[in-house]
Nucleic acid binder design. Structure first.
Length: 410
RNA sequence: GUGGGAGUAGCUCAGUUGGUGGAGCGCCGGGUUGUGGCCCCGGCGGUCGCGGGUUCAAGUCCCGUCUCCCACCCCA
């Protein structure tokens, strides 16, 4: 084959593309009835937007971004995630002034230069929401509830883990305590964690290595170091989640890979995905808007991995729908073309077989496209002026005289 | 970026010690001169991922490369 899709990107052709649409439809249905409005954002931005927001030390920025220089000498990056652009747009358009309490959602491709694996592609799709302006714990709970609703709507089984990673006040104190604890045990950590210990000690907490987990199990918990404000906030979030009937598990070692998170963080994980088990994740990021150059504005959001959700989607039986027109002879074909046009104008799905093969071949085609009805127009029908309408699920066939009568029988 | 496994028909896979490539499913057609699904019969369909090497001879052995899968890593 001379041309192939590049490594880590894939085409979605039917029926995969239909599964994709099903996920997006369910997502939109749930978030729209919760009052979120869609934003359509660029797939590339100045690279430094991501460096600033996602974090210089994060792997996403350090080694996974598609960065290039455009013809005007600008340093561009294909977006590796959606929040940075949403925040940039919120600030750029002064939305904080016009509509300080804003609920947005977005759907689209993201790009990360990673080694491909199931549930991890170089171009992948995320559907996400962002809530700007709300500092109250009720917003955290509502956000998580919306996420839970989406997964339920899709019948995707996932377990929810939550944690609070504190704020500017308390996190540094915890970080110090953790470093203090780990310092004496560096020898017991895996090589990756030795490096994490230097760069971002919190990441040692969610290492999968058995030895590291042993060490970590005795480590100080951030929840014991939260300041009064963060502790109260976290307690309220949990209280509201219980009120809303959302099941969750507290994981004091849950941390996230993006630098902008504060206070509430959460992850929905599925057992059906192998190593890439997170299907939806997010949290609060109260300082990000300020850092991007907007007014200090509390915010929170999440992103769902559409590709990953698709992998978990149960197969759906395609149901029969519409009409397939079968004809023989030029006169019948012309009548068929007009009939199809008529039905479509009435909102009915209608197709015609242009190949004019045998009735058997055309019936087979009608069956394959999962039509509910076949309309047969042959010599007899043309001569005597009627349509033969066959219901494919039952095999029952009847004569109908006019288009209107046909329409009434569908 | 690291480690492991795999690439043969559209799909799932057989292919014996190297000797001119098969099955099932699917697709097209026929059995039914005007009727789908079940059954029977026939047909189309392959540079054996790509490139190089060994050999009289390579799907089969060797090297390289690309892609996919799994794990690490990372993350949605």
């Amino acid at each position: 084959m001379e041309y192939r899709a590049l490594r880590g990107v894939e085409d979605l052709i039917p029926p995969e593309s239909l599964r994709f649409e099903r996920v997006v439809d369910a997502f939109k249905r749930v978030v729209e009835r919760a009052g979120f409005k869609e934003v359509i954002l660029p797939v590339f931005e100045e690279a430094r937007l991501f460096t600033r927001s996602v974090g210089e030390s994060s792997d996403i920025v350090k080694k996974e971004m598609y960065v290039f220089e455009d013809k005007g000498g600008r340093v561009i990056a294909l977006r590796p995630e959606g929040t940075a652009s949403a925040v940039r747009a919120y600030v750029e358009h002064g939305v904080y002034a016009k509509e300080p309490f804003t609920k947005w959602f977005y759907v689209g491709p993201m790009f990360r230069f990673e080694r491909p694996q199931a549930g991890r592609k170089r171009q992948f799709f995320q559907a996400g929401v962002e809530l700007f302006g709300f500092s109250q714990p009720g917003a955290d709970a509502e956000l998580i509830k919306v996420a839970d609703d989406i997964l339920k709507e899709l019948s995707v089984e996932a377990t929810l883990e939550i944690n609070s990673i504190g704020c500017k006040e308390c996190r540094p104190k915890y970080r110090e305590a953790l470093i203090e604890f780990l310092k004496e045990r560096v020898g017991q950590l895996c090589p990756d964690c030795v490096e994490r210990f230097e760069r971002n000690p919190l990441r040692v907490l969610d290492c999968k290595n058995e030895g590291c987990r042993q060490v970590v199990s005795g480590a100080p918990k951030i929840t014991d170091y939260l300041c009064d404000g963060c502790r109260e906030h976290y307690e309220k979030v949990k209280e509201y989640l219980n009120l809303l009937g959302v099941e969750f598990r507290e994981n004091p070692f849950l941390v996230r890979g993006l630098d902008y998170y504060t206070r509430t963080v959460f992850e929905f994980k599925s057992s059906g995905l192998g190593a890439q088990s997170t299907v939806l994740a997010g949290g609060r990021y109260d300082y990000l808007i300020g850092e991007i150059g907007g007014p200090e504005t509390p915010a929170l959001g999440f992103a769902m991995g559409i590709d990953r959700v698709m992998l978990l989607l149960p197969e759906l039986e395609e149901k029969r729908e519409g009409v397939f027109v079968i004809t023989r002879g030029e006169e019948a074909y012309r009548e068929g073309l007009e009939l199809v046009n008529f039905l479509r104008s009435k909102g009915i799905k209608a197709e015609i077989d242009h190949r004019q093969g045998s009735f058997k071949a055309q019936m087979k085609a009608a069956d394959r496209v999962k039509a509910e009805f076949a309309v047969i127009i042959g010599e007899e029908e043309v001569k005597e002026g009627f349509y033969s309408l066959k219901e494919l699920s039952t095999g029952k066939q009847e004569k109908v005289e006019t288009r209107e009568e046909l329409l009434a029988r569908l």
